Simulated scan of single mutants.
Amino acid sequence: MPSLHPLFSGATSIALNTPDYYQAHPGLATYLAGFEPSLNVLQCMDAAREFISSYASPNGAGETPSSFRSSRVVIERLLLWAWIIKNKSVETLGYEEFREFIAFSSAPPSHWIGDVARHRFRWVEDVGYLANPAWRPFCKPIYDGGLRTQSMFELIVTYCASFYDFLINKRVCNINPARNFEKLTIQSLTVVSKPIDRGLTAWHVDEVLRVGTSLTCGRHERALFVVAIAKDGIHYLVEGLRGTQVVTTPAIFHTYLERYRLSRGLPRVPPACEMEPLLMTGHGRAGLTQRQIRNIVNELVHVTIQEMEDKGCASDVTAPLKSACMDSILLS
């Protein structure tokens, strides 16, 4: 199976004509030559570069707006997935295979995921752009990641649908397998016969609460409280809390609230005149960002997974919770 290799570089070089592009990226032509001729990788590469370059800065100053970066990431993943995983040319993919690509994007294998976002290529004087061996198509901010939100799903579908329309206009292919996917929701697609939210159930959340309650280090009291709040709407744990909102907690959450307040050195029950914020950073700043909340909860979920695995829980039991703790794969 061919190794992973970046295909597209910056906004300026991607618009070069074909001979100049490969001359500026020594090693890329050799990499592409390793695929079977039936995959038409060179034709797909040229079409993809033309499509992606249409999102580049019109002033040619090498700027990389978000639309260019996003289209580059999505199309690059599509091409590599088609060639390496399916051993098929991109223009021959059908509807069900595109569904497989969406599922793959929600849970890529570990060797497709880098620890952080890295440059695709590095410039070497008198040589050109050389592929960064540490680059991977996906990256993770904390844990392995997956397709977490409807907006990320729609982003992939939008760029792929536009790309296939582009290929149809160039008479490279006849059908657009990404069409009509924009009408679906992320929950309607599956990974290994499970919802893309990995089948997270109330039992999984109860396990997080059970493990969090048993901990005495005091490190996870904020996370325990947030998960307790989220339990009445499990999608909050999956999607992440959004913004600042007033939350009225049922009596069942009072235990967690009291634990959390005691961990901060506050009275169990807040006095009527108290001005203390509900959530604070570790440095005492009032309020938490959405990412901070996700990260805090992810730590506790990760501890829960470790305990479940130590007790011999089967992988199909921990998988939904493991995926729920994974933060989103950033579009690098």
Rank of each mutant, 00 (worst) to 15 (best):
V74F: 08
I75N: 05
G146K: 04
A103C: 06
E100C: 07
P58H: 05
L79R: 02
S110E: 15
T64W: 08
G60C: 01
G128L: 05
S53Y: 09
F153T: 02
E97H: 09
F138A: 06
S89V: 00
V116L: 11
T158A: 12
P109R: 02
I75H: 07
E91T: 06
V74Q: 10
R99N: 14
Y55V: 02
E125P: 00
M152I: 12
N87Q: 14
D144Y: 10
S162K: 15
V90G: 06
S110Q: 14
S162G: 15
P108A: 03
D165A: 11
S151H: 12
T64P: 00
T92I: 11
T158M: 10
F166A: 06
Y143D: 12
I102T: 02
D126A: 14
S54C: 01
W135K: 03
H111I: 05
L167N: 03
V90A: 10
F68W: 01
V157I: 13
E96Q: 13
Y95R: 15
S54M: 05
K86C: 02
E96T: 12
T92R: 10
P137I: 05
P137G: 02
S162C: 13
S57P: 03
V124H: 13
V74K: 09
F163V: 02
H111S: 12
V116H: 14
G114N: 06
L80A: 10
S89C: 07
S110P: 03
A117P: 08
V124G: 04
S67Y: 06
I102N: 07
R69C: 12
I102E: 10
P109M: 01
S151C: 10
D126S: 15
R120S: 07
R120V: 01
L147M: 08
G94C: 03
I113P: 00
K88R: 08
A103P: 01
N169E: 15
S66Y: 10
Y159E: 12
V124Y: 12
E91A: 11
A82E: 07
S110V: 14
S71W: 03
P65A: 11
T158S: 13
Y164Q: 04
I75P: 07
S71A: 15
Y55G: 07
P109C: 04
G60Y: 02
R148F: 02
I156C: 08
F101N: 05
D115E: 15
S70V: 11
G62Y: 02
K88A: 04
A82Q: 08
D126P: 06
F121P: 04
Y159A: 04
V73T: 14
W123N: 15
I75T: 06
Y129F: 11
M152A: 15
R77L: 02
W135M: 02
F138S: 05
